[in-house]
């Protein structure tokens, strides 16, 4: 038997300062397009860039981080920060302020959104210190985190999982696919986003959203106010 506990204590933690402060260490986030010339919109593959007068506006829910509007002569201005979540849903009642149980459902993601969720327990983010737990049973779940564009085969399991959760409950759509269908769009095989199937309380843009953006969305659902560097533009 090895003394793994000791080994754990000896190792560096690199824990983020979030949520006390916004942490933007290099590589934590891909950043986001901010504003730019109207000509930038032509190359956008998903219609996330929309022309408004002489400028391009960004609908972040549809941005798939293809980086096309980052380079070249019609480049947009990018900012190395995080596109935070947004949504009209009210937070959970006060009893959930310090702890929630989350059910994760894959509705056809590409693997990168789930991979970012898998990073949440890593020492850099340490999800559990915030009182957030991934639960094995929908009966114990307060929040349903959904990734992916909702494929035909996952539509019913998604509805069943939601139905099995006790009230009060909230739904968080994570990533461009869950928000808008992303590159997969609405099609014969995909619903084109969670909102096509279930009421969504919060949406986290990004392809994939960086782990901090998911943490922020969960804290918002818990009713904990956070430092936010610039409001999102959905």
């Amino acid at each position: 038997m090895r003394l793994w506990a000791l080994r754990g204590l000896r190792s560096r933690r690199d824990l983020t300062g979030f949520p006390r402060r916004i942490d933007l260490a290099p590589g934590m986030t891909p950043g986001r397009p901010l504003d730019g010339p109207a000509a930038a919109a032509a190359a956008c593959p998903t219609g996330a860039l929309q022309v408004e007068g002489s400028a391009s506006r960004v609908a972040l829910d549809r941005c798939v981080h293809c980086q096309r509007c980052r380079h070249g002569e019609h480049a947009m201005r990018w900012r190395a920060d995080i596109a935070w979540s947004h949504g009209d849903g009210t937070p959970l009642p006060r009893a959930f302020h310090h702890s929630i149980h989350v059910r994760v459902l894959d509705a056809g993601d590409c693997g990168a959104c789930l991979a970012e969720l898998q990073q949440l327990p890593a020492p850099q983010y340490s999800l559990h210190r915030l009182g957030i737990f991934i639960t094995p049973s929908p009966r114990d779940a307060d929040v349903l985190l959904v990734v992916g564009p909702v494929t035909r085969a996952m539509r019913q399991p998604l509805l069943d999982t939601y139905a099995a959760m006790p009230a009060p409950k909230r739904v968080v759509a994570v990533g461009a696919c869950a928000a808008s269908g992303g590159v997969f769009g609405p099609s014969f095989a995909c619903a084109g986003g969670v909102a096509e199937v279930l009421p969504v309380d919060r949406t986290v843009p990004g392809c994939p959203p960086p782990p901090l953006a998911v943490l922020e969305a969960l804290l918002a659902v818990m009713g904990r106010s956070l430092p936010r560097d610039g409001e999102p533009a959905p």
Binding site: G27, M28, P30, V64, H65, P210
Partner: peptide
């Protein structure tokens, strides 16, 4: 992932 993010602009190397 952070090394990729910092040098490629994307943690999973999308759009390269």
């Amino acid at each position: 992932l952070r090394l990729c993010g910092a040098h490629a602009g994307h943690r999973y190397l999308f759009g390269l």
